[in-house]
Design a protein around this nucleic acid. Structure first.
Lengths: 348, 348
DNA sequence: CGCTAAGGTGTAAGCGCTTACATTCCCTCC
DNA sequence: GGAGGGAATGTAAGCGCTTACACCTTAGCG
């Protein structure tokens, strides 16, 4: 089924059919109706490849995320999709699993598809490619960290601020031995959260002892990290996790060992994915507004929208502390007895 | 950057460049090297649209799922992607949120992109369109239910069998008042699970009392359904949920009301998503082998692979009961006394 | 040494669409 | 009634690629 078939059937030229399909002005209603009828009758589906090739605006957005299994990324994707869809775009997504080579190949695929714009919602190092990339199409970077670039729009969440709020909250509750559970701590933006944790904790040093561990992103990773932490001998009264998913894993390990949360140990997450409300105990976390991020991404990528976000500019979205049931004052015993094994003061 | 540029740079014709890029035989190694160097130098990315248009095999698979926010579907997607990727294909996915019109538009988009094959992993009614669809490209249907079609490959999980095993297991534990929590119970395959629950329960009638409720798919829906169930006055000692995600929501509601699981009420899920292991208590569920499903989908869609799954054929994958901590014998009181306003046992 | 047969490489015809430009049509107005 | 002017429609040139086919080497053989 091609445009030509439709044109013949409707007894018009391909140009007219094309006009109807792209609802361009200047087609007599009668003609338009005839064409639409032909389309219907022939069950015609435009060939998107041909359309893209011929230079019609592609109306497809590309998005690359680090870990689509993490609901945080998934939420962003869904928000972007919802907004884009509403403006007549669809979005194709690809996943890197934090692997840099997959990022590169993902970018190439997107480029090859000639997407109208590309959102890079990844934590891993963005190859130099991105520099030249921005010359070819609108690009927006979420969480680009150190790789923030001159000529692309940058969105980032104030992770430092959020983590600071979490640590201060824990400190205010009376916690003096804290740990941080992260993943891929070498990657820019993830590194930042760990740094934020450490530097805020340091403000309270030497009063507050810290320790950090890392594992793979995900619930299993969180569980593993908590296991390592506990086996290290360090006995934190509060554990801050780099994201909610890992916190859920951490919770699991604590439960398995009969350590009560928040009775014995407080746990915090980050992101405020919907799961955070559903685990037991419900997670204290920092909300990262995915809907807003999604909207910003679309604004930056779709020309029609009055973009607030010019290339080269950076928008910082704020996080918000959400207190639920996984945090509480440390047990009296823990508060008074400083415990010697707290030797391993964190990273650095 | 076009093929032409590369050709000029390498001082060959576009045909030769194309041959190199598709590693077709019959290019002198020296020439090949020169072309590759030019590609490198110019940082050339082939235009996938043009390639698809020109009739090269598309090497892109399409997949449509009902609810990508449900890890079950996401897992299938990831498995399909992994296998496809390994065979040089990439896959684009789109999401219907159980809406039939979005299914139709998704199919059109996929068709428009001229994907090499299309996997329909949806619960909603598949429009007649599918009939003609299969004439155009390889199509595989997962869970097509009643809409199983003659000319497409069908994969389905033995939900009935899995549900039967769950109900029998619960019955064997001594449960005599059971409920079922579902969603979209009008949709074929989802309807099937509810029916399976009811018919198995009926075998034990009138000894076993049942009740079913439904809400939206997802944790919030599960919570809502459980709330409705409890407020209805019916006091089941066991609740079977249509999937793990809803079970997690149900768990939450029980916890909020201080009803202990499995002490007061047993809960089961379905699918065995990874979250099922991480919630407290860990969910008893039925494992649906997503990896196998993913492999079957790829086999059906990618011609190279020695497809076990010819069009028109149906493959049934088996489920397996996974017993964890959310099920137990009903409390003695519940077994003898028909009504139990379960005392607060709650957390921990 | 000339002929043939491959193997390498180039040429050019599309693939299905969009769009600038040309053409036709139908009114309007003098 | 004919000229002028929009509005409606048609024509055709690509978009970047693949591929059948033509062409030109080169090597092998008699």
């Amino acid at each position: 089924m091609t445009l030509d078939d439709v044109a013949k059937h409707a007894r018009v030229s391909t140009a007219t059919v094309s006009r109807v399909l792209n609802d361009a002005p200047g087609v007599r209603p009668a003609t338009r109706a005839r064409v639409l009828r032909a389309v219907e009758a022939l069950n015609y589906t435009p060939n998107l490849n041909a359309r893209a090739l011929a230079g019609g605006s592609p109306r497809t957005l590309g998005m690359i995320v680090s870990n689509i299994a993490n609901p945080f990324f998934l939420d962003i994707f869904r928000c972007v999709e919802a907004v884009a869809r509403q403006r007549g775009y669809d979005v194709i997504v690809t996943n890197t699993d934090y692997a840099q080579d997959r990022l590169a190949s993902g970018i190439n695929t997107m480029l090859g598809r000639r997407v109208a714009g590309l959102a890079l919602v990844v934590s891993e190092t963005v190859p130099d490619m991105v520099g030249t990339l921005a010359a070819q199409l609108p690009v927006v970077l979420y969480d680009g960290g150190a790789h923030r670039l001159q000529n692309v729009a940058n969105i980032r969440a104030n992770y430092r601020g959020g983590m600071k709020r979490i640590v201060e909250y824990l400190h205010a509750l009376g916690h003096r031995r804290m740990a941080f559970i992260g993943h891929h701590t070498s990657l820019g933006p993830l590194h930042e959260r760990r740094e934020a944790f450490l530097s805020v904790a340091e403000e309270y040093a030497p009063q507050v002892k810290v320790r950090t561990v890392a594992s793979a992103d995900g619930m299993a990773g969180g569980q593993m990290a908590m296991r390592q932490l506990l086996e290290s001998g360090f006995r934190p009264t509060a554990v801050a996790c780099v994201n909610d998913l890992m916190a859920v894993g951490a919770l699991r390990e604590l439960h398995a060992r009969g350590i009560s949360v928040p009775g014995d140990v407080s746990v915090t997450g980050f992101d405020n994915i919907s799961l955070a409300e559903f685990v037991t105990p419900a997670l204290t976390t920092a909300d990262v507004p995915r809907a807003e991020i999604g909207r910003l991404i679309c604004d930056a990528l779709i020309p029609e929208s009055g973009s607030v976000l010019a290339p080269g500019r950076e928008v910082v979205v704020e996080t918000q502390l959400i207190v639920r049931d996984s945090t509480a004052r440390p047990a009296a015993a823990a508060r008074s007895v400083p415990v010697a094994s707290a030797g391993a003061a964190g990273g650095r």
